[in-house]
Design a protein around this nucleic acid. Structure first.
Ligand SMILES: [Mn+2]
Ligand SMILES: [Mn+2]
Length: 260
DNA sequence: GCTTGGC
DNA sequence: GCCAAGCAACGCCTT
DNA sequence: AAGGCG
């Protein structure tokens, strides 16, 4: 008898709970599921109503991984989904996480990375936040990333816009800029691109707008192209499949100013 | 992780 | 009944 | 038209 968790009258079978997911830390699938339960009050609001892409690691972070957009056949019928039409009329049925039992089920599926869309299923074509994705290449320091984040914060503040920082869980930082869902992805992308070019002119020494990795000179890539339909950003509190089992963590501006 | 199909 | 195999993304921007 | 990219 595999263990069963019952939440809101819905049962989730839990399998292979002792399987190591982060072997260096000795963290198992049970630890992952426990983490999801503990952070659910903070995590669920960021997933609510959004098409979700997940990256799964059934054999742990050193095993084979794959991205998943469509809900698998045979999933519980109480999992919410959202059909999205892509090019050539293809329809993808994305999972939408609106409750704890779905999150637990994702944990048992060994979903480590949670990547929600920038738009809600109710306004699919209009993002309700923009993201400034700061991707430090090898020669960049976290202190430099923090400096750049502050430059963006100040530029946006000059437009009466407030944005919110989080770590990516790897080496970068992302800034969330809440939007009314009234602009197209293209408009949002162009706005973020324009701000990023201003940032690059202020700090050409530590930033790059170069899309080709090899040409980035080790600097911080200002990845405005994350603001595109169908693209996603790792959710706040999402685990990362990296040594040490880090997560993407919201920051205060005081922490960013501290350059930790 | 799970379903399917061959044995 | 057991187990190996197959399967689980994708489109846009840039050049 | 192709392909790098996340
Ligand atoms: Mn990033
Ligand atoms: Mn990026």
């Amino acid at each position: 008898m595999a263990p069963v968790l019952s939440v809101n009258d819905r049962s989730v079978n839990l399998t292979n709970l002792t399987k190591p997911i982060w072997p260096d830390q000795g963290y198992t699938k049970q630890d992952l599921i426990r983490y999801y339960i503990e952070v659910s009050p903070f995590l669920l609001p960021h997933l609510q109503g959004r098409p979700l892409v997940v990256q799964r690691f059934p054999e742990g972070i050193r095993g084979e991984a794959f991205y998943q957009k469509n809900i698998p056949e045979g999933s519980p019928d109480w999992i919410d989904t959202c059909p999205v039409t892509h090019e050539e009329g293809k329809i993808t049925r994305y999972i939408i996480v609106g409750n704890l039992e779905t999150l637990i089920w994702l944990g048992n599926q060994a979903c480590l990375e949670l990547h929600p869309w920038l738009s809600s299923s109710r306004t699919l074509e209009q993002p309700d936040f923009a993201v400034f994705d700061l991707d430090p290449m090898e020669k960049s320091t976290f202190e430099q990333v923090c400096r750049v984040a502050l430059v963006i914060r100040d530029l946006l503040a000059g437009l009466d816009l407030r944005c919110y920082p989080k770590t990516s869980g790897a080496t970068g930082i992302q800034l969330y800029l809440p939007l009314t869902p009234t602009y197209s992805y293209r408009e949002v992308r162009r706005f973020v691109e324009a701000i990023c070019w201003q940032v690059h002119e202020l700090r050409p020494d530590i930033t790059t707008m170069e899309r080709i990795v090899e040409k980035r000179q080790g600097k911080i890539y200002l990845d405005y192209l994350q603001n595109v339909r169908g693209k996603t950003i790792v959710a706040p509190y999402s685990p990362r499949p990296l040594h040490g089992a880090p997560v993407s963590m919201p920051l205060s501006w005081e922490e960013v100013a501290g350059g930790k």
